[in-house]
């Protein structure tokens, strides 16, 4: 690891004063929460901050469910959120997304805030042996376009970066219309999760809308009866302990055999957690018959662009939507 000063501030205002910023490789100061992504990036010299600011003990780790909906403290662990009985009952898509992420050990360590800010698994980003990576070194090019890109995104890409966002949790949350609560020295703001991550465009090194000194304090999910009838389907290269090749989060409001309303988001295929409103609109008012589901799912491919090795994802993501809707629709 590159040498850094480790700050262990006594309270949150002291932590904010360092002006740390997540999701930017050139930030001189960065936070560390559970450390499960940060320590990897430090070990591999992908991140070389001068200062690391520990958030340990400074942020809320509670899970609260009320009439307004769900509130996840930023320090709540993946394991605690996944195992929460009322999340399993009322927001199964969240629990399922988490239980299909990482390993039991990592889930005991990793936090909600860190999960939303984990960096891409693009192998070129994580290997400093490759010079070309616009996300790691702005202006250096992109080794994945024209390289090994089986794992990369097909939606929201640019010629400058095609890295997929790796978070399973974020896919489930964006389907449910979640928001991110952010604190800085001057006050608080709330950002819809759908607007929290940036598209790569011509500046893939800027990953989120967070400003220096801002931390995530909580994630909120509005109450919705749809969340009960929800499912997370993850397709991966081995049965467990692997990132998504493709995933689909689905929530349904059913009236007998008819879909009144649907929420659908995709993982493994977008440069950010990817909600598909056109698919949702096409599902609404229809039934669960496979032909209708396939027609609706086909709209997800709108604007999709494969780069060779990842072309198969365009078809696979449509099938994942169909399967996830069928499973959610069959839920009581």
């Amino acid at each position: 690891m590159h040498p850094f000063t480790l700050e262990r501030p006594r309270d949150l205002p002291a932590a904010l004063a360092f002006g740390a910023q997540a999701g930017r490789n050139d930030a001189p100061a960065e936070y560390i929460a559970g450390g499960t992504d940060m320590v990897q990036l430090l070990q591999e010299y992908v991140r070389r901050p001068d200062r690391l600011i520990s958030l340990a003990g400074l942020l809320d780790n509670r899970v609260e469910i009320g009439p307004q909906g769900l509130r996840l403290g930023a320090a709540a662990t993946m394991a605690d959120v996944a195992a929460h009985p009322r999340i399993i009952e009322q927001f199964p898509v969240i629990s399922e997304a988490l239980l299909n992420s990482a390993s039991p050990q990592v889930r005991n360590q990793a936090t909600m805030g860190g999960n939303l800010l984990q960096r891409t698994r693009c192998p070129y980003f994580r290997d400093v042996g490759y010079a070309a990576c616009n996300k790691r070194a702005p202006g250096s090019g992109c080794a994945a376009v024209g390289g090994e890109n089986r794992w990369h995104a097909v939606l929201g890409t640019s010629e400058h970066c095609i890295a997929a966002n790796p978070s399973d949790l974020a896919v489930a949350l964006v389907a449910l219309g979640a928001s991110v609560e952010v604190r800085r020295a001057g006050g608080d703001r709330t950002v819809p999760l759908a607007e929290f991550h940036r598209l790569p465009g011509d500046a893939p090194h800027l990953e989120t809308v967070l400003e220096p000194g801002e931390v995530i304090t909580a994630i909120t999910v509005p109450a919705s009866p749809m969340a009960r009838r929800s499912h997370y389907l993850k397709v991966r290269d081995r049965a467990s302990f692997e990132f998504a090749v493709v995933s689909a989060a689905v929530a349904l409001d059913m009236d007998g055999g008819t879909i009144r309303q649907a929420r659908v988001a995709l993982g493994g295929v977008g440069t950010k957690p990817w909600r598909v409103p056109r698919v949702e609109a096409a599902l609404a008012g229809g039934g669960l018959d496979p032909a209708a589901l396939r027609r609706a799912a086909a709209l997800a491919a709108d604007g999709a662009q494969g780069r060779g090795h990842n072309d198969f994802k365009i078809e696979l993501m449509q099938r994942a939507i169909v399967r996830a809707v069928e499973i959610a629709g069959a839920r009581a």
Partner: peptide
């Protein structure tokens, strides 16, 4: 259980 290689 945790992975001690990922904790400072």
């Amino acid at each position: 259980r945790v992975k001690s290689c990922l904790s400072l």
